[in-house]
């Protein structure tokens, strides 16, 4: 199940665990990323919490936790090479895996068609 947030994140949900990243649209808007800070495995966040930070040449931006949950895996490849987020934002540029506190919460998020309508 692929879901999207208004904060331009995508979630690929399998067995109650969401792989989370930023959308192609968000990566284009941010421009060349030079630094990514990821949460620690085991950290828990509420929906809307500051889970990660991305920095372009010009500015820093927060990546919010899309739903309540616990971080169970992080993608160290993007901290080593932040440009992966620009080159493959919805694949190899994923940020973290989130064990959802309540899998049904995902129902409230947008599907791909709704997200495409949002970003035009």
């Amino acid at each position: 199940m692929l879901k999207f947030t208004e904060e331009h994140e995508w979630l690929k949900i399998e067995n109650g665990v969401a792989t989370v990243g930023i959308t192609t649209h968000a990566a284009e808007q941010l421009g060349d990323l030079v630094f990514v800070e990821l949460p620690e495995v085991g950290a828990t966040f509420s929906k809307g919490g500051d889970a990660a930070t991305v920095e372009s040449v010009k500015a820093a931006s927060d990546v919010y936790c899309p739903l309540d949950g616990e971080i169970v895996e992080i993608n160290e490849a993007i901290t080593a090479d932040p440009s992966l987020v620009n080159s493959d934002p919805q694949g190899a540029g994923w940020f973290f895996k989130l064990k959802l506190a309540n899998a049904a919460d995902a129902e409230s998020l947008m599907d791909e068609a709704a997200y495409k309508e949002l970003v035009g």
Binding site: G31, D32, V34, S56, V57, K58
Partner: peptide, 12 residues
């Protein structure tokens, strides 16, 4: 213009 299609890194 804050940037062109090449992007800040390449422009720099």
């Amino acid at each position: 213009p804050v940037q062109y299609p090449a992007g800040v890194m390449k422009e720099h």
